[in-house]
Design a binder for these strands. Sequence first.
DNA 1: ATTATTGTAGACTAGATTAGTCAACAATAA
DNA 2: TTATTGTTGACTAATCTAGTCTACAATAAT
Lengths: 144, 144
Amino acid sequence: MKLSTKTRYGTRALLDLAINQEKGPVQLKDIAQRQSISLTYLEHLVTPLINAGIVRSARGRKGGIWLAKSPQEIRLDEVILLLEGSNAPVECVDRPDICPRSGSCVTRDIWTEMKKALDDVLAATTLQDLMDRQNAGTQAVARS
Amino acid sequence: MKLSTKTRYGTRALLDLAINQEKGPVQLKDIAQRQSISLTYLEHLVTPLINAGIVRSARGRKGGIWLAKSPQEIRLDEVILLLEGSNAPVECVDRPDICPRSGSCVTRDIWTEMKKALDDVLAATTLQDLMDRQNAGTQAVARS
DNA sequence: ATTATTGTAGACTAGATTAGTCAACAATAA
DNA sequence: TTATTGTTGACTAATCTAGTCTACAATAAT
Ligand code: FES
Ligand code: FES
């Protein structure tokens, strides 16, 4: 039950974008550098976010990417769904038909609860929340 | 974020054991047959449970395995920990030292919440609960 | 004692998945 | 026109998963 690096890096990249997009499009190159992710790999992380419409992009000089919505409108459950797929720990939680006995399978109930628990945690947090925490943290460090 | 078959089969095997242990040791062969798991694979699933002391075993004729504790004393978080490992979706949740910036990493807070949410769900359910649900289900079917 | 039966341990393997890289291409601003 | 930036997809090495296979250890029945 580990998250892929795609999800972890992708989430970090999105947070980086949220923090740095004030002055217009942010270039992948810069995100890659700040977050220590290879540029070619980062491209793959961003693609699903663009396709889903939560990030927008422009090519060419002065190109880059930016958030299509405000940070408080982007919940982590959407992000993780795009990067990692469903939080269902077993396939049959989402598609009962693939397990013949899913109607009477008691372990499936538990797997379903696990999915819901994860969804709840992730749906309760937005990109804005992460930005706020980040700022609070750096201020605390600066203050000390 | 998928559970391995080891965890899924292992949990089913344990539930099968809990249900069938009334008349003494249950043989792996029988669990394998009832649960449609190959005997040789099942052996690997059971080993960590035996080593951890929640299942006991005896070899030879009339041998088999049985629960070392009563079903209501066996929580699913223990079981999943043994079969799948920690619910931490990222290694650094359990071992902050492996990520240099773990002290100020805001995504890590989220991964930590995910782990806690999973632990809470699993700790709230015992093998006895699964047995009860199973019985309720089959009765409901029989009644209908 | 011997033997059939049961669990134990670990080496081994095929296939799937992950975590990337690489190269060719498309769009746009200067 | 060209330098720059994102897009796409093929490709690969390494790792992990889901098992199998073999030899062995312990015990009950005979
Ligand atoms: S594992 Fe799919 S229904 Fe039980
Ligand atoms: S991912 Fe480990 S601390 Fe941020």
